[in-house]
């Protein structure tokens, strides 16, 4: 009976407790809902920021169907997300595993590897990028030594996006820290037991690390997708807000910003925002559905 009791009681709803714990969040919800509802309303208006919004029905959404620049920005954003999210998470997890144990001077490496994320949208990052990938930057100098004439990485529309993907992978610090924290939650005894059984490193990774870390991997994945679809700062800083060269780094969010603040078309920008919300929500929902098959919780 004592064995069964907790299960039964666990099923019992704890409405009042849940709501009490959520009290601050409910308070915050008011602060969030007001602007949310406002922007949803604006999505159906013609709003130039300076004069009152005028109801426009679905006009903005109809315009989006034929907006070639918007389609270009969607393409840029999808390519960027599909390539950079898995790549940067893999790098972050790999580095976190290496840094998790067994290296002298861990704290230093960890801090150093986190540096690019600290600097964020700093001019120093832009300088590094030009220095590495500029027309006569280091990468092309290196290529020249083996007889290859490299392209103009940052100014050629065919290559600019790939350097931004690299830039993103390079700032793997944030997911790395989360992975590190997650690895720290895995009880060491599992590894001790596995070692006694003579399990290989790979086997330990597959049978212990991956399943026990899966909630954290899941978090990083969902989070990275949401953030990646909303990428703004990198392109804003590197392309000076233009999304150039020739729109090749015009992320959806950057185009939205241009529409809203440079072209005074906040109604259109709001419709774009809600389309993006639906896209992200769709991907997140798929993620949560798929999580049932690979994310392991201890309950």
């Amino acid at each position: 009976m004592t064995e069964v009791l907790p299960r039964v009681r666990r099923r019992k709803r704890q409405d009042w407790a849940g709501y009490v714990f959520l009290l601050p969040w409910f308070g915050g919800l008011i602060f969030m809902i007001v602007p949310f509802v406002a922007s949803l309303y604006l999505a159906f208006t013609d709003y130039d920021l300076l004069t009152p919004p005028r109801w426009a029905g679905l006009a903005n959404f109809r315009e989006m169907l034929g907006d070639a620049t918007l389609h270009q920005s969607l393409k840029v954003t999808f390519v960027y997300t599909l390539v950079s999210v898995p790549l940067s998470l893999a790098v972050a997890l790999g580095v976190a595993m290496v840094l998790d144990r067994g290296v002298r001077g861990l704290a230093i490496y960890r801090s150093v590897y986190y540096l690019p994320s600290l600097l964020g949208g700093s001019v120093a990052i832009v300088m590094l990028w030009r220095y590495l990938f500029g027309y006569d930057g280091i990468v092309n100098d290196l290529l020249a030594t083996i007889g290859i004439t490299g392209p103009a990485w940052t100014t050629d529309p065919d290559y600019a996006l790939s350097t931004l993907i690299l830039l993103h992978v390079w700032t793997f610090g944030a997911p790395m820290v989360i992975f590190l924290a997650g690895l720290r939650q895995i009880p060491a005894m599992y590894y001790e037991a596995a070692q006694m059984d003579g399990a290989s490193k790979w086997r330990q990774f597959r049978s212990i690390t991956l399943p026990l870390l899966s909630p954290i991997i899941f978090f990083n994945l969902v989070q990275a997708l949401i953030a990646s679809f909303q990428t703004f700062t990198q392109s804003y800083v590197i392309s000076n807000g233009s999304g150039g060269p020739a729109g090749s780094t015009l992320f959806y969010n950057l185009y939205l910003y241009q529409k809203g603040f440079a072209e005074f078309d906040m109604g259109y920008a709001s419709s774009m925002a809600w389309l993006l919300l639906m896209i992200i929500a769709g991907f997140t929902a798929i993620n949560f559905l798929a999580a049932r098959y690979w994310v392991f919780y201890d309950n």
């Binding site: 949310f36 949401i226 909303q230 809203g260 774009m272 993006l276 919300l277 929500a281 997140t284």
Partner: peptide, 11 residues
């Protein structure tokens, strides 16, 4: 989760 998905510029 939804509150994380709307681009901040329109808010």
């Amino acid at each position: 989760l939804g509150t994380m998905m709307l681009p901040g510029h329109v808010l």
